[in-house]
Nucleic acid binder design. Sequence first.
DNA 1: TTTTCCATGTAACTCGTTACATGATTTC
DNA 2: GAAATCATGTAACGAGTTACATGGAAAA
Lengths: 183, 183
Amino acid sequence: MDRELLLLGLLRRHQMHGYQLMEYVDRTLARCTDLKRPTAYFLLDKMAEAGWVTCTQSRAGHRPVRQVFQLTARGEAEFQRLLRAGLAGYTPARFPDDMGLAFIDALPPAEALDLLEQRRAALADALAAARAVPPHPGGTQLIIDHQVRHLEAEVEWLDEVRSRLPHPKRNVRRGAESPASAR
Amino acid sequence: MDRELLLLGLLRRHQMHGYQLMEYVDRTLARCTDLKRPTAYFLLDKMAEAGWVTCTQSRAGHRPVRQVFQLTARGEAEFQRLLRAGLAGYTPARFPDDMGLAFIDALPPAEALDLLEQRRAALADALAAARAVPPHPGGTQLIIDHQVRHLEAEVEWLDEVRSRLPHPKRNVRRGAESPASAR
DNA sequence: TTTTCCATGTAACTCGTTACATGATTTC
DNA sequence: GAAATCATGTAACGAGTTACATGGAAAA
């Protein structure tokens, strides 16, 4: 649904051929979507069949023939419909990586902390990358900002999780066989 | 991957048959996963083939025959592997509903605000529901808490988005034909 | 006696991905 | 002459969902 919206939204600005669309997406929207090339071609065909776009061949110079897609009136209507539905709706987010948390007590606390530290590092990298993204035009910036906000919240939360976990004894030497502890 | 981890983790506690597993998941883990029944049966078969669990038939009273699954040593090893990978890793989250934001300027500001208000309401409902969940045992509570945290961040962010949007003129009467405005 | 619960499965389908295939044309 | 770019497609697969099918037993 969001992929259709994306394609319709781009075609609304100007007509484009598939390759051109994907180039734009890969260049400037990589952080906003993960649309792949074959998926785009497939969706464009589907949308053409549905009458949301028209497809005309064109050849510029001696380059390969291009399938140029142009929005139709029905496509514009569909765009409006999808846009409204997308803005008003809310699809609950799932975090598959969280499943491990349900069983975290199966690990010794020291190791659990270590693993979460690794996750935190990956998260921090992603956050730094998101913050470093150059400014985007129009509403696209909102998506980037959302990601930054989300990642900030994730880091905060992870830190809380780690602080909530049982503390391993400070004098346990990790990685070496430790002598029998008090417990 | 997270579904396998879930099933292995549950079977690690005690052996169970499929129906029993799904009942438990539906009853007490509905907010932590969206595992469906046919998926569970499929995965259990796959895991049995892979040697992670053994499957034995059993009949209690005159009830239908049950396929009881029990964790093997290899299953335990796989559980450990998945658990570590799940805890250390981080899979970037996507928010498909955000696509609409990229094209929000295609709508009159008043309507955009209205749609986001609807989204906010849905979000607030989800947050209230997540907060009302009764306490869960062990690590499962972490997943619930994560959801609460996430939803709180979402609400905050949505409020910021709305405040950033261009303000519609206050004296525009929405829904009625308005007389020519200053612009 | 009709409905609900127990307990399993399967078939068809959707969505998306990976990987493969083609062929001309600039650029190095 | 080799490599990258332009531009399209298709085949095979994987994960997951929906919907359908079965059939006995307990509860209403």
